[in-house]
Design a protein around this nucleic acid. Sequence first.
DNA 1: GAGTAGTGGAAAGTGCCGCTGTCCATATTT
DNA 2: AAATATGGACAGCGGCACTTTCCACTACTC
Lengths: 211, 211
Amino acid sequence: MRISELSRRTGVSIPTIKFYLREELLPPGSPKARNQAEYGERHLRRIWLIRTFTTVGGLDLSSVRKLIQVIEDESLPLAAVYRILDRTMARPPLEPPCPDSVTQARDQVDRLMEQLGWRLLDDSGGATTLVQVLAALRTLGCESDLAFLLPYARAAAALADAELDLLATDDGEPDRGAAVVRGVLLDVASAALRRMAHEQQVLVRLPDAAG
Amino acid sequence: MRISELSRRTGVSIPTIKFYLREELLPPGSPKARNQAEYGERHLRRIWLIRTFTTVGGLDLSSVRKLIQVIEDESLPLAAVYRILDRTMARPPLEPPCPDSVTQARDQVDRLMEQLGWRLLDDSGGATTLVQVLAALRTLGCESDLAFLLPYARAAAALADAELDLLATDDGEPDRGAAVVRGVLLDVASAALRRMAHEQQVLVRLPDAAG
DNA sequence: GAGTAGTGGAAAGTGCCGCTGTCCATATTT
DNA sequence: AAATATGGACAGCGGCACTTTCCACTACTC
């Protein structure tokens, strides 16, 4: 398969494919002549992966690069794969406009973790984000008890559990590539589902919303 | 208060404040002389709002502008406010690399809605996203039964319910500004919490993840 | 075998976004 | 009087994800 067919079958323009090649997001095809290379199924799948990560997952290309490296590196244990995945999905914490309140917010999160019986790594991206959000909510003057988050947190844990169940395969080795894609897509899916729940509750409780 | 104090107290640089003024994200101060204007608490709060939406909420300036307009427009009913909020938070659906599978994915989502007893508006941003994700998962060959999403969806609905409970105030009128900020921040918070649940489950089930 | 279309590779250019820097006539502070 | 700050206009920048242009060459098409 040459570049034009690759382009046709993926719906990605030739210049963009060349760009991905240059960026080494896509490995070069096997050269057949000075200006002729052969691309295969692997390239098709790779392009599908890149487009899925960017358009559905909303990731930037540096994140995509990281995830591809992780998938490729067979020596990396699955636990490390997930750790990098979780780091990559968490938006990098830009400094928020709430320098105060952060200490209290951190305490709140610690207490929540305790109530849930969770023990995360220190550099958890999610926890950092949660602290910032709570600090902002406090600055807003909306410093509620976090107990109402508990059932949701447990449901989220159950969801993550179900995701990890999918690792089991017929042969012993789990498909690391599929695990990463699933991780990204389920993250997006659960965010979407939560927003749908929000829309639903708004429709139920503020009936004139249908207008 | 003049611009330098506004800058000092918000931590936002003067050029940036000027930029926000130009973009009409920030209303002009009341002029005191040809080159002197007075800014007040309102400007402080507005800048806090903009920075919170962008740095914590991850919104772009056009979304921020939309949300500010919504908050300002007193005539808009609360239901409409939430509707715009939900539309704004949902990432605009870039065309994904899965032209097929979309029909089946739509059916899956319809069935899920039925099981949940939900009835969303046709143009639900969350539903569109969910369809795309399921189509991608199907292309990946990971087309599981969506039943495992049900408890999570119900917990998400309960969370949204709790959020709407916060609308009640001492006087009759709910604070629409606070409602919007809360909507944005709780969206980010629940995404963070879900990722924390994921990290937690990974640590529990793949114990060597601590390395 | 002449003509056209396609190919890989390099380099420069594009459009958008969120600022940032510069300039200037005027005000304020010291 | 000198130094600093202000508001306003406008050009410029850095990052990102491409897109365009050019080239020498190859491969099908008649």
